[in-house]
Design a protein around this nucleic acid. Sequence first.
DNA 1: ATCCAACTGTAGCACCTGCTACAGTCGCCG
DNA 2: CGGCGACTGTAGCAGGTGCTACAGTTGGAT
Lengths: 187, 187
Amino acid sequence: MAKDPERREAWTREATDYALEQGLIGLSLRPLAAAIGTSDRMLLYHFGTKDDLVAAVLHDSNDRAVAAVSALDPSTDLRAAVHDLWSVVRSAEFEPCTRLYVEAAALGLLGREPYAGVVREANERWLRSFVTHLTRSGVARPLAGRAATIIDAAFMGFQLDAPPDVGTTARKRAVADLSDAVAALGR
Amino acid sequence: MAKDPERREAWTREATDYALEQGLIGLSLRPLAAAIGTSDRMLLYHFGTKDDLVAAVLHDSNDRAVAAVSALDPSTDLRAAVHDLWSVVRSAEFEPCTRLYVEAAALGLLGREPYAGVVREANERWLRSFVTHLTRSGVARPLAGRAATIIDAAFMGFQLDAPPDVGTTARKRAVADLSDAVAALGR
DNA sequence: ATCCAACTGTAGCACCTGCTACAGTCGCCG
DNA sequence: CGGCGACTGTAGCAGGTGCTACAGTTGGAT
């Protein structure tokens, strides 16, 4: 199935870039292929199936987002960690990654594959990166897991409810409230 | 455009039922029409456009969810309110409504109409119903708004990340943690 | 009875979807 | 050289999409 690994990887990256700006839900092979300078015929030959392509794209997008969180310097405390994590999630570079994740999760809501499976895996890795950042920031182990769950869920909700509002004062207060609320879990 | 109001309303309800179980993203007119005993031709005649039909369906679904929240007895305090609201959101009857909302929100993420507009309106009404329930439960006004924002966002995240897990102990602990965290906002 | 407007069934349009059959072309190994 | 396997362009298939043109068929007001 993997005929030419490096070409496949290059196409995966380009397809991910395309999906990040065009969206996943309406994605179809011919426009994607044209955008990255090939044909649907070639994509199917090298990926086997559209579903396999999509799975690769989601994995790649997830890799980027997780890497961004991993690259974060430790935060001073739990409250600061919420803000730092949010600054990654809402950043122009990585916001499309979480947007793509949301689209995939919506597609997987009814259990449709490959979305449901890939999304579950992506969420696990994403959550783990949150936990890792929290522990690196001095948050005790059991608390870190519980806080990460709340933080992740709230971030997804923020993303879902008002995507164009990123950066408004209302959103900033919501994040500040979230950090206050989560910090209270430690007591 | 609204030729026969009552038939249109009846079809809207039936279409909503259909969308609630079949999903919104892949929705197409012919299967829907067949399921409710008519034809795509008729749907288009009475609704004008698929987008108008979808908007009506989303509005109806939102009505049902908001009505369910409004029908709630006041909770004893903020923490209890989180649990009571969650019991509505996750209930077998209304969980599909929030699922549908999530699908619409995902479709609207890139600003595509009618989804983006309808979703914004639905979110406002939904949030307002949360605030109303919180104030009826004795939560002071400014706090109620801020808490509702966090609660709504977290609920959406829960829905998004692991739909089949509804009812598991992990999810219950997450909701309990959320109620603890939000309750701390009052101090 | 007439006429008009509201309604509806049939058939089809133009377009798009993932995917594939066929016919090559290319480079490497013998 | 022959041949073989990996690769790729062309064309097309079968099915689906929202939507519409056309030809009725009602039912009620005149």
